[in-house]
Every structure is written in structure tokens, then in C-alpha cells.
Amino acid sequence: MTLNEIMMSFEIGGIYGIAALGIYLTLRVIDFPDLTCDGSFVLGAASSGILIKNGMNPWTSLSIAMVAGGLAGAATGIIHTKFRVTNLLSGILVGFMLYSINLRVMGGIPNISLMNRDTIFSSFPIVQILGIGLMSCAAITYLLMTDFGLGLSSIGQNKRLAKNSGVSISFMTITCLALSNSIIALSGALFSQHQGFSDVGSGIGTVMTGLASVMIGEKMLPYRSAIFRTISCLTGSILYRIFVSFALHGDYLGLNTSDLNLVTGLMILTVMYTPRKNYAKT
């Protein structure tokens, strides 16, 4: 691997690390296996791409992309809590519907080119990516340490006890899903600006990539402190991208780009099989 390929792994890993942070909120904090993320990732990319194409400031487009992702997550939460649809099916339904919505957002075309358009990235995109990633980690860490964050965690630990303690399960679930998918949409918007295009199929595999990142990060930083739990998502995503790049560039393994899903699945299985240590402090 060349230095440029390693740097690209860091950049893409940082972008998907933000998505992994959103997946962590639903998967680990409230114990909600949300499958909306594939659609909300593309929704963020589509929203940011079409706005930039129409002349909007790229930073402003990130904020609007987050709002759009938050609405998608809230829709999943409402379907689950108000219509009594199971968590898996509610995410599948919203993600399924988002495909059509994303196409409409993109003007009915499957991809949008951002070539010769201003984006947030300068000559050193790794600076912006890691900066946004670390700020996202800091914001989520602060949230988890507040009373609201403790209420979210209580839902994931014991819903009945949380409800008896006065926690609104429905409100907390909807809010967490909205927050999670807004972060994932931010990741999608950053991805579109970094790659110079928005594609309706770019979100395929986001949930698996995020899951792999979360699990690798937990193995590398097995601490219970909120700051380590959020940083581990970013770290795990970068390591995941580096591992995959090495695997696909290893001629002795005989792998190529089409084997990416196979490598990802095997990596997740390996991480799940590896014993995990828990640290109560630090």
C-alpha cells in the first residue's frame, strides 16, 4: 500500500466512524437494532449534494442533511412506538421507503456529480474529517453524561425499570433514533463531498460497516467510560478501513474489490469470537 492509500483509508474510516457513532447510539445505548441507517446515509448525501449543486454553502448543507436524517430516524421511532411495529421491521420499512425519497431529492437521477463545486474539504481533508469526528464524539459523550443520556442508557438496560422510574420510553426512543440518524446523515453528506458525487446506492452496507467499526473499537478500547466508548467508534472505523485495505492489496491472499463483503463478514465473526475484557474505570 502507498502512503496515499493509507491516508485515504484514514479519511474514509473517519467519515464512516461518524456513522458508526450513530449506530452505537441505537445498538448499544438503547438496544435498538436500527436498519434505517442505509437509507439515512444516502439521504444525507443526496440532500447535501443537491443543495451544493444549487449553489448552497457546503457547511449549511451539512446542517440540512442532519435535519433530514433526523426526520427519517424519528419516522422509524414513531412507526415502532405508535404503530406497534417491531424495531427491525420499522427500520426496514423506512429504509425501503427512503430509496424512493432519495431519488426524488436527487431530482429523479441516480447520481449527482459535485465536480467543480465548492466543498468543505481543503488540500488536507483529514483535518476536517477528524475535527468533525472528534467534535461529534465530544457532543455525544457530553449527552450521555447528562440526565437525558442516563435516561437513554436506562432504556437499553431495563425498559420496565426505566418506565417505573418515570422515563418516557416512546419519547426517548424517537429522540435517540432521530439523533442517531442525523449523525449518520452527516456522515453521508461528508462522504458525498469527499468523493465528489452523491449516489443512490452509496448507503448499501452502512449498517455492516458501522457494526464492524463498533465491535473492533470495543475490542481495542474496552473501557466503560463514555469518552472511550465514543472514541472507540472512530478508532474502530479507521482500523477497519486499514485492515480491509491491507487485505485487498495483499496479492498473496488473492482477494479483489468484489471480496469486500466477504472480508467484512469474516472480520466481524473474528471480532465477535475474540474474548472481550471489561474495565469498570477509566
Rank of each mutant, 00 (worst) to 15 (best):
E5G: 01
S9Y: 07
G13A: 11
G13M: 09
I15A: 11
Y16N: 14
G17V: 12
A19M: 15
A20S: 11
I23M: 06
Y24H: 11
Y24M: 12
Y24S: 08
R28W: 00
D34M: 12
D38T: 04
D38W: 09
G44T: 03
S48Q: 05
S48R: 03
M56Q: 11
N57P: 08
S63K: 00
S63W: 03
G69W: 01
G77D: 04
I78A: 08
I79S: 02
H80V: 06
N87H: 14
L89Q: 10
M97K: 06
S100P: 01
N102C: 04
N102S: 06
N102P: 12
V105E: 00
V105S: 00
P110N: 01
L114E: 00
M115V: 15
M115C: 05
N116C: 01
I120V: 11
F121S: 13
S136K: 03
Y142W: 13
L144M: 12
T146R: 10
G149W: 02
L150A: 04
N158V: 03
N164Q: 08
N164S: 13
N164M: 10
G166Y: 04
S168K: 07
M172C: 14
T175K: 08
C176Q: 02
L177M: 03
A178Q: 09
S180K: 06
A185P: 00
L186M: 01
S187G: 15
S187H: 08
A189R: 09
F191E: 07
Q195H: 10
G196Y: 11
G205Y: 02
G205A: 02
T209C: 04
L211A: 09
A226Q: 06
L239W: 03
Y240K: 15
Y240R: 14
L255Q: 07
D259A: 13
N261S: 13
L266A: 07
R276G: 01
K277A: 00
